[in-house]
Write a protein that binds this DNA or RNA. Sequence first.
DNA 1: GTTCGCGGTTCATTATTTGAACCATTGGTA
DNA 2: TACCAATGGTTCAAATAATGAACCGCGAAC
Lengths: 266, 266
Amino acid sequence: MGTITKALELLNFFSRSRPALGLGDFVRLSHRDKATVHRHLVELAENGFLEQNPETRAYRLGPAILRLTAVREATMPMRSLVAPVVADLANEVGELVHFSLLQGEQLSPVLHTDPGRHGTQVHFDEAEVLPLHATSSGLAVLAFAPADLRKAVLAGPLAPFASHTITDAAALEQALDTVRASGFGVNDQGFDDEVASVAAPVFGPDGNVIGALGIAVPFARMTEAKRTEISNLLPGGVARITTATGGTIPTALAEAWKAAQPDAVS
Amino acid sequence: MGTITKALELLNFFSRSRPALGLGDFVRLSHRDKATVHRHLVELAENGFLEQNPETRAYRLGPAILRLTAVREATMPMRSLVAPVVADLANEVGELVHFSLLQGEQLSPVLHTDPGRHGTQVHFDEAEVLPLHATSSGLAVLAFAPADLRKAVLAGPLAPFASHTITDAAALEQALDTVRASGFGVNDQGFDDEVASVAAPVFGPDGNVIGALGIAVPFARMTEAKRTEISNLLPGGVARITTATGGTIPTALAEAWKAAQPDAVS
DNA sequence: GTTCGCGGTTCATTATTTGAACCATTGGTA
DNA sequence: TACCAATGGTTCAAATAATGAACCGCGAAC
């Protein structure tokens, strides 16, 4: 593993619940030597990716990140395109909606909205990357991903995250068939024991999957009626995002959706 | 210079006008060996900071950036707080308004809005970091910055950017006195020969400068009336941002503003 | 068909990263 | 007061990883 990767991985330890970390925290989380971690932190800070609170000496994410986001959004306006769709969906369904982009063999959350209409809320951490085999979004992506990515994930170890995580390659392939047939990735207690979720894949201009739009519901609150509601609403959201980004929805997927909910409005 | 810095510097070559770059571009811009650059690019891509267009093989900024922005914004909601202020100001003044954060001895642009009301427009590149001695925002920050930062900048070389860049330490100190007296950083043709600009510093909760709110106008269009208008409006914008972030405006600065425009509305 | 520029790769040389031990400061505790 | 346990940070020889000149294969242009 290169030095660059080691340094960048430090940035992954930040999360909504852990927005600032001390040197010791990084050492514990990364299992690396203190001196090494410290030099990496300093170098990241010198480049504006981190900044240090001079009083507490804790590190937090720096302004360079914002600058780069501005550049990316100027040319690939994902956030601004997706944000209204996610917000609308969250309002309609009344549950946590999130959008993630495929990044290598994982999913990288872009944004999420929780309407906060209920007492219990699904905890969603945008700093946490999502595994492809253990989330509804991941299954949705994987089912429509290029063969080599699918093969790579099937070959690799399938880490268990919760009681119902699919950890067997054969079972995973079967699950992906189901996803392709229905057009939705479904995952109950596969990533978190208390969460059930449904997701649909999103495609880019070249016809490849680029990410997924997902809805996460506390397991106790996930009824059949809610599943139907979600299945009816998700394709519309995906369509909005896809057209906005100039992508195209594969006909096979559109067919699957149509077959699943013949009464859904376009 | 460490490997991490070398890799991260590659990210700085992106800009609004250059949203995707090929290997050769990076090599030319960075003056480094092709093999080195290539490995850095690959490693950045592996971590989601870049992604490669499989057809053109060009690199663009990746989704990891978005994820990190989401985390930072969740705890330090700069963009979302500042965006409406910048938008309002841009509408009122009819010129390009931008907000930047202090990052080491430079300014890192966070966002900008150009109402696009005129034929000529100031070119503002959010990917470009701004020098402290050659921009109005920089002068505004520097004038109210801790002594050690000011000393560091005064000691370092003052690179010329345009015909009127202050390159002499003594002249710079004098300029900073003027800034402190008026409460505004003013810079005409110091960063770009065709641009005049005015900026005001923004302070954080600890009472230190954290950045600046600036307005850039094509030199030919910058009249005295416009300067007055800007001077009347800028303090309001700074106040909105400062209160939103829980900061406090130093009394000395508030006094300077009051003295400069006794007829300004609060 | 040759040449040019492109992205990408190789491998011996070299320079950078590494980490055990160390220092300084703080906050708690006997 | 003295002591201990954490904290963040630093040092320097040893080990490892980064480096870059030369090379490959490809597609476009002449």
